[in-house]
Amino acid sequence: MQIYITPEKKISQFCKPYIIAEIGANHNGDMKLARKLISEASKCGCDAVKFQSWTLTSVDSEACFQECGTEKEIQKIKDQVKKYSLNQSQHKELKKICQEFNVDFCSTPFSFDEVDMLAELDVPFFKVASGDLTYLQLIGYMAEKRKPMVVSTGMAKLSEIEAAIETIRSKGNNDIILLHCVSLYPPEASEVNLKTIPYLNETFGVPCGFSDHSIGIHMPLASIALGASVIEKHFTLDHNMEGWDHAVSATPEEMTQIVQYSNEIQIAIGHKSKTLSPREVEMRSGFHRSIVASTPLTAGTILKEKHFAFKRPGTGIKPVEAKYLVGRKLKCDIKFDFPITWNDIN
């Protein structure tokens, strides 16, 4: 199955992986920093950059904030949420910047109004956050926009994933991509469970990818070998920057490696068969062995196994064919260490 994100880019495990640089809130409320992140993601070869579209009131209730600690601590978090949120004008500006750097602009909406705003901006797909997998009302509203749906599955039970898929399909939208995700920042290696990727693909029959929160580049690269057709990785300029996700993000150097190596791995996966490349065929004669004389042999010699040695190159009689030479008579002399050919025997 393949899904077109844009007329030029399609999602399939047989195609170049679609790489999303998850900027999220790593712009820290600074549009100059956001521009720099987009520019660097483009240089890395990423297909898309993704932001998050929320406000102080579109996700967390006041009761949720009250669980964050003291009044001072609560106010600090509210100030951060307000600072890191993006208004409609900023969304439009970010899309223009993405067009300037030839990278797809997308964002995760957390409310109906934000879905409408992103639809007006003609994002190539809608992203469902792991935390909203059970928010079927919002998922259904996104699906009605008839754009591909990229659905993260962190914290989800299989039945919840199935319900989300059924909701999307009930709206006449069959363009669904699941992202295996572990909603820990970062997860331990034992918690990543990359075999979930082919399992989700086999279970639901849709393209699958990996939304990664691990440290380093090895987990997303490993996911390609297990069939991931989309990689989403948080992106930063510096792990030590102030903010929520910089520590678990990829730097430009790391993202460049993810893009480069994931493309190479996808090509190297190949197909389920045992075939030889033309270059490997050329190597056969040089590295395989042939039957050569283990001692100088004279015409009339009745060949025995003791007369044989097996050495490179493999241009003569194969070692497995030695039994067909035993008992045969030589028609000519054979020098030591030279091949015995079918023309040399009666």
Score class of each variant (00 low, 15 high):
T341E: 11
I77G: 11
I5Q: 13
K272T: 14
P207Q: 13
S130R: 01
S42R: 03
L86I: 15
K92R: 15
K304C: 02
S53Y: 03
C15A: 10
G172Q: 07
P124R: 07
A293R: 02
L136P: 09
M255V: 05
M142P: 06
I269L: 08
L136G: 11
V192E: 12
M155Q: 13
V151R: 01
C15Y: 02
A309N: 11
K78Q: 15
N173C: 11
P252R: 05
G154N: 02
K95T: 14
V128M: 11
S42A: 13
S294D: 12
I267W: 03
R279L: 05
T251I: 03
E253I: 02
C64R: 12
D245T: 09
K306G: 06
Q266W: 00
T108N: 09
V151T: 05
C106H: 07
L94W: 00
H27P: 07
I291Y: 09
S12K: 03
S294M: 01
D104H: 00
K78I: 08
A222F: 01
M283H: 10
L276I: 04
T153H: 03
A322R: 09
P198V: 13
Q52M: 07
A228G: 15
C46S: 12
F110G: 14
I224N: 13
I3S: 15
K127T: 10
P319S: 15
P339F: 03
L221V: 09
G227C: 05
S89Y: 12
K311V: 05
N174L: 03
F308A: 12
G316Q: 01
L56C: 14
I345P: 08
A129N: 08
F126V: 09
M219W: 04
I217C: 13
K331W: 01
H271P: 05
F105E: 15
A63T: 04
E71L: 07
I258Q: 07
P207M: 08
V49D: 13
C106T: 14
P339Q: 10
T301Q: 11
K50P: 14
E191V: 01
H180P: 12
E242M: 02
A268P: 09
K32F: 00
F126C: 07
E264F: 00
T6E: 08
K274I: 13
L184G: 10
S42L: 02
K157Y: 00
D175W: 00
S159T: 10
D113G: 07
I197W: 02
D337G: 11
D132V: 02
T203N: 09
V182G: 12
K127R: 07
V151S: 05
